[in-house]
């Protein structure tokens, strides 16, 4: 398996595939319900002007999440 990083550490503009989502009691279920699942492709669009939260694009729409939530998600960056 290729190298993976936390979603919170993905560089802006990079695309990646979700490989794992850590199970927590609340945020991970809603993230999944919003369509962030193992195997989902996403692009990190930008960080907010103050560095947090993050904006990702997936399944044709834009979603924000805080870095603390993004650190639960492991992704495999795609080669540019």
């Amino acid at each position: 398996m290729a190298a993976t990083v936390k979603l919170s550490a993905l560089p802006v503009g990079a695309s990646a595939v979700v490989r794992d989502i850590q199970k927590t009691d609340s945020s991970s279920v809603r993230l999944r319900e919003m369509g962030l699942l193992v195997g989902t492709e996403l692009t990190l669009v930008r960080c907010a002007p103050l560095g947090d939260p993050l904006e990702i694009k997936m399944r044709g729409y834009h979603l924000t999440l805080r870095k603390s939530e993004a650190s639960l998600v492991t992704v495999e960056p795609k080669e540019p």
């Binding site: 609340s26 939260p53 729409y61 834009h62 924000t64 805080r66």
Partner: peptide
Amino acid sequence: GKPPLMIMELPP
């Protein structure tokens, strides 16, 4: 409470 989530859609 728990720190609030910021899982929010940015609609077009």
